[in-house]
Computed example of a mutant assay.
Amino acid sequence: MTTAKSRREEIYQLAVTAGLASVEELSERFGVTASTIRRDLAALNEQGKLARTYGGALAIGAHPEASLRQRIGEAFEEKQAIARWAAQQVQPRESILLDGGSTVGALAHALRGHADLTVTTPALNTVQELADSPGIHVDCLGGRLRSLSQTFVGPLAEATLERMTFDRVFLGADAVTAEDGICEADQAQTRLKELMARRGQHVYVLADSSKLGQRPFHAWVRLPLPWTLVTDDSADPHQIDLFRSSGVRVHAVERRHMVGDMGEEAGKAS
């Protein structure tokens, strides 16, 4: 009889080569119950090795989810420039919602000098960034901690969101397309982002150019229009056109501002 560790490793290897597997198929292959397989898939999902899909199927590719710590160093200058532009949109006395992720985390850092601001977040990195900022009141959405993304997800966070509204909502993404919206590795995160977008007067998706048009995972959420994509000027013009044609506002942060003055205008609007 195989151990849980060896079974999960084999599930991962099968998934990488086959590309798609279902709970039923895996249950039959390993001679265990569907509940056991679901626990295996949940564990592999938490490790960032697999991405869950609807209907009990598991979509698995060669794109394991990176941890928050790994993502912080990727496209660092682009993320900092996007964060600076986003911080300039925030006005005194506003109530804003900050998602998890490295780019939104950079926004949290850029907001440290703001005063008279209320920030709500499910993200531990944002809480840490703003914990000692005297002009910012921080509310944390509780729930189940997802270790890879360092965010709280699940019914508790969702129920809290239903009782709140925000002037601005800033979302992160593993990837984003004009056709299907935000792509994530985890269904619970896409569900939370969907609810976040519903609660904001102005909704922004912060995504550097490497994420546009990509499909690394199989968990999606389409955002209701209008919303604003904030990216950098290395973005493929064709991708920018696709977003604009679908009704999305786009701000492409100019490269010359990526190491520029915080007070300068750091973007251009469609």
Rank of each mutant, 00 (worst) to 15 (best):
N125F: 10
A86N: 05
E94I: 02
K193D: 07
L41Y: 01
P216T: 09
S35V: 08
E74A: 15
Y204H: 13
Q214P: 12
A252E: 09
E77D: 14
E78K: 15
K49E: 01
E74V: 15
G31A: 01
T118D: 15
A106F: 15
V221P: 03
P64E: 00
V176E: 01
S67W: 08
A108Q: 04
G181Q: 10
T118E: 15
E10K: 06
S27P: 01
T33F: 02
L130C: 06
K5G: 00
S67I: 08
D139W: 06
G263T: 06
P226A: 08
E264K: 09
S27N: 06
S210L: 14
A110P: 13
G142A: 11
R222I: 03
G31F: 00
H238W: 15
R191K: 13
V23R: 07
A252M: 08
E9L: 07
E25Q: 14
F152R: 01
A62I: 11
M196A: 13
L141F: 00
S133F: 09
G267M: 04
S102G: 09
T120S: 10
E179I: 14
G56T: 05
R69C: 14
F170T: 02
V203N: 05
T120K: 02
L44S: 04
L145S: 05
L195H: 03
R93V: 10
L212F: 10
D116V: 09
E9K: 13
I182T: 10
V248S: 07
G172E: 02
E184M: 14
D241N: 12
G213R: 10
D233Q: 14
V104W: 03
H257D: 07
K5T: 07
P122S: 07
H114R: 10
L111K: 02
V119R: 00
R29Y: 11
L44V: 02
E10T: 10
G101N: 14
R199E: 00
T121R: 01
G247I: 14
Q13G: 06
D186S: 04
A75W: 02
G31Q: 02
G263D: 02
A42H: 11
V169W: 03
A42P: 02
L206D: 08
K5H: 08
K49G: 01
T190M: 04
V16K: 13
A266I: 02
A131M: 15
R69P: 01
M258F: 14
R146V: 09
A43P: 02
L229A: 12
T103W: 08
L50Y: 05
H63Y: 13
S67A: 14
A159M: 08
T120E: 04
E94V: 05
A42I: 00
Q201H: 12
A207R: 00
T120Q: 03
F217H: 14
Q189T: 14
I240A: 05
R84K: 10
L156H: 00
I96L: 08
T165V: 12
W85F: 10
G56A: 04
E77F: 06
W85D: 03
L192S: 01
T231A: 09
A34Y: 01
I72K: 05
V203D: 07
G154A: 13
E10I: 07
G143A: 13
A75R: 12
V253F: 04
L156G: 04
R222L: 11
R8T: 04
S133Q: 08
Y54S: 13
R69S: 14
S270P: 13
R255H: 10
G263R: 12
T151K: 04
